[in-house]
């Protein structure tokens, strides 16, 4: 229980610390340790991991709570299963919906992220939309609509896929923040 509270607290830090602070801190550190990293758009990846942590954690936590993980693990162990078998045959199959939900939430978070990419001077979709919006508002609005449609399509897909994977079982609820 203490660990759960700690992790939940850590996941909320990203909302409490302003992005500019993160970027300045990371840039200062990377300039000293690995200045070459700042020249690649891949520098955004660890920041996106931190940013989506809160969403993925909650999606997976909801999945774990819904399946009574401890008892299932005990049952599998009593039947002779080792940890690899338990992970591959018991935990992951029963977390498929939660994993899919976490993955798609991450995609949508990354699709909409503006501040970090802008501060690192990389032109991601939101940065491009903001830039084009100043000169061509209709184009920016069209792109925004397409993004919304894409996100909606992902949600339909996760619902459809999880239904097919679940053997007709009732769907687990994916909690979003």
């Amino acid at each position: 229980m203490h660990l759960r509270a700690l992790v939940e607290g850590i996941t909320l830090l990203v909302f409490a610390i302003p992005a500019i602070t993160l970027v300045i801190g990371a840039t200062g550190l990377l300039l000293g340790l690995a200045p070459w990293a700042l020249g690649s758009p891949l520098i955004l990846v660890p920041f996106y991991v931190v940013l989506s942590f809160a969403f993925t954690y909650r999606a997976l936590d909801a999945g774990v709570r819904a399946m009574d993980l401890q008892t299932l693990v005990d049952a599998a162990q009593s039947l002779g299963a080792g940890w690899t078998t338990i992970l591959l045959r018991v935990i992951l199959p029963n977390l498929r919906t939660a994993l899919l939900g976490a993955a798609f939430l991450t995609i949508t978070v990354v699709l909409g992220e503006y501040v970090l990419s802008s501060l690192f001077l990389y032109e991601t979709l939101p940065v491009f939309m903001a830039e084009i919006g100043t000169a061509e508002a209709q184009g920016a609005a069209a792109l925004a609509l397409l993004t919304v449609l894409f996100t909606w399509g992902l949600l339909v897909l996760v619902s459809f896929v999880s239904r097919r994977l679940g053997g007709g079982r009732p769907q687990m609820t994916v909690v979003t923040t």
Partner: peptide, 27 residues
Amino acid sequence: PNKRDMGMVFQDYSLFPNMTAIENVAF
């Protein structure tokens, strides 16, 4: 526990939800 050769039945069934009855028994 997985080396003790003991079968256990739990209070709340604890069947694997992703498996059918026969797949549970065959696990």
